[in-house]
Simulated scan of single mutants.
Amino acid sequence: MQRHLALLATVTLLAAAGFWGLQQIPAPAHGKARQTAGAIPKNDPAHSNPAPLSPLPVTETLDNTSLAGTTVPADLVMDGDGQLIVNSGTRAILEYFLSLSGELPDEQIRQLIRQWAEDNAGPRAASDLLALLDRYNAYRQRFASGDYAASSEADITDKLRQRQQLREGIFGADATALFADENRYDQFSLQRREILASDMSETEKKQAMQTLYASLPEQLAVQYRQQHALRHLQQTEQAIKETGGSSADRFAYHQQTFGDEAALRLQSLAQQRQQWQQRYQDYAAQRDRILAAGLPSKDKQHQLQQLRATLFEETEQRRVAALDRLEEPTRE
């Protein structure tokens, strides 16, 4: 887990492994396909079928996005015929590229996935991966509805069951392998909940929790600690500030808890938020002068539109207009 707290940010803050949606952080190295025993190497002349070259290599394209300096987080695994074998790493690969949603057109993201897979695993595995992508996008769309997220501790078990049914309905036999890590984490969450809700003494609960944590694979243990820290990040940062901590102290906490790259992203996000707040405050001062001027309402609106167009990008203008509507009652 080296990155993708990201799309905290972006990744955000990572799409989503674990019940509460923390995304995995990519591991180092642009993944090369791995074949199972008995598989025929990609460079075997009898199985060579190179894909047409793209006008722009995948790495060069990624270097012009928010994923610059990162790497594809897993390898593709194939059988001896070059057919894709689905596992949890396959999902990590899809999430990695899909984190560019909103930054690149969907079709360009699809072409990046195809090109990367063909370069690293050949056309058959690439075709399999694109077919899986279509199903995965359907799953993400269904899951984004919010119908499968637990709204309270009481309905966690029922929601997990519904999520499992959704996955099996869309992915069939691939569901177990595709969501293996998340299923293990969900099971851990249920066991943890059962311990905390039991009538054991506090000492017994503490011992049971220690045993449960010790049973977690290291990767999931790190994921849980990061998710817990992420859910309480705002309170922790506020506590650091109230005790006299500086921005350097906050960065040191991020670095220790989430790793170097995630700490840098959190720092960048904080700077972006500060810059945005300053830009909006500067705009608001000019806006208020326009509104206070003795101009007809139509002229005021025209000047406000011009001011927004001058100071903000098109997508930002919609956000500014929405903030203005929220502030209207306080200005009246």
Rank of each mutant, 00 (worst) to 15 (best):
A17D: 11
S88A: 09
D63S: 12
N87W: 10
S88M: 00
L94E: 06
G69V: 13
A68D: 07
A33M: 12
G89V: 15
T59C: 01
T36F: 08
I40L: 13
T90S: 15
D81V: 01
T36W: 08
Q35I: 09
N87S: 10
A92W: 06
S88P: 07
R91L: 02
P52R: 14
G18K: 05
G18R: 03
Q35A: 12
E60Y: 03
K32R: 14
V58N: 03
A46G: 13
A74M: 01
R3W: 07
Q24M: 03
G89P: 11
R34Q: 15
P57G: 00
L14S: 06
A6F: 01
H4V: 07
R34N: 13
P26C: 06
H4A: 06
Q83I: 02
T10H: 06
P73W: 03
D106N: 06
H4I: 07
N49P: 00
Q23P: 02
L76Q: 05
L7V: 08
D106T: 02
R91E: 10
V86S: 09
L67P: 11
E103N: 08
D81G: 14
A15H: 12
G21W: 01
F19R: 13
I40C: 12
S99E: 06
N87R: 14
G21L: 13
S48W: 15
L14E: 09
P28F: 04
V58K: 03
G89W: 06
A6H: 10
A51C: 14
P45W: 09
L14Q: 04
D63V: 00
H30Y: 12
P105C: 07
E95N: 15
D44S: 13
S99G: 06
S66K: 11
T10W: 00
S54I: 07
S66V: 06
T36Y: 00
I85C: 00
S48Q: 14
P57M: 10
E103I: 12
A92R: 11
S48D: 08
N64E: 14
P55V: 15
D63K: 04
T65E: 07
A37K: 11
V58E: 04
A51H: 12
A74L: 01
E60H: 15
L13T: 12
S99V: 05
A51R: 12
L56T: 11
G80P: 02
H47S: 14
D75H: 13
T12A: 11
T12M: 03
Q23H: 03
L5S: 07
D63N: 14
T70Y: 11
L14K: 02
R91Y: 01
A29G: 13
G69D: 06
L22M: 08
L14W: 02
G18T: 11
Y96D: 04
S66M: 04
Q35Y: 06
D106Q: 14
D81F: 04
P105S: 05
F19N: 05
P45M: 12
H30P: 07
D106L: 13
I93N: 01
A27G: 02
L14P: 03
N87P: 02
R3N: 15
D63F: 06
N49R: 15
I93R: 01
T70L: 15
L67I: 02
D79V: 00
S99D: 09
S66H: 06
L7P: 02
L104I: 01
G38T: 01
L7D: 04
L5D: 09
E60F: 11
P105G: 09
A9S: 09
A74K: 05
N64F: 07
N43E: 08
A15T: 10
